[in-house]
Design a protein around this nucleic acid. Structure first.
Length: 139
DNA sequence: GCCAACGTTGGC
DNA sequence: GCCAACGTTGGC
């Protein structure tokens, strides 16, 4: 299984919006970046990821699961853009802030730190497990 | 609100 | 195929 991080600006699409969709999940649409799209193409059903609030909050707030593989993005006619569907699994009891990640040498190599503009990115298994632990949830 | 970093576009 | 111009993202 692979691990990922999905970044969203909460005023556009928040964790609460995601939770409201329940197990049906929702398209992670609107991505217009090849790197991010390519990561989504490589995702498999059951992969886990973090849900990150950018801009104001700047923290990882929850865990999601991929529930549909890459398919055309319904928000555009341009067939080069694809997206997966994800569903909320559980919130972090303790959200993990960007500051906290930057301050932890074990997490300093995260793409979130290295390339802050990439909206869909891979997370290593170790990073995933550590953040789950820090966030108060079992993996 | 600013700006650095980065990605994309299009003229040559 | 290069690169200048432009647009967008997101941290500060």
């Amino acid at each position: 299984m692979a691990f990922w991080l999905f970044k969203s600006e909460p005023s556009v699409w928040s964790w609460d919006d995601q939770v409201a969709k329940g197990d049906a999940g929702e398209e992670w649409d609107g991505v217009r970046n090849y790197q991010a799209r390519n990561f989504m193409r490589s995702m498999a059903i059951g992969d886990r990821g973090f849900f990150y609030h950018s801009q104001k909050d700047k923290e990882i707030v929850g865990i999601v699961e991929v529930c549909a593989e890459a398919h055309p993005d319904s928000t555009t006619d341009n067939d080069r853009w694809e997206c997966v569907d994800i569903k909320a699994v559980e919130p972090l009891l303790q959200p993990i802030s960007l500051d906290q990640i930057k301050g932890d040498e074990r997490l300093a190599e995260m793409v979130l730190v290295k390339n802050s503009r990439l909206s869909v990115q891979p997370v290593t298994e170790n990073e995933f497990a550590l953040i789950c632990t820090l966030g108060g949830v079992s993996v």
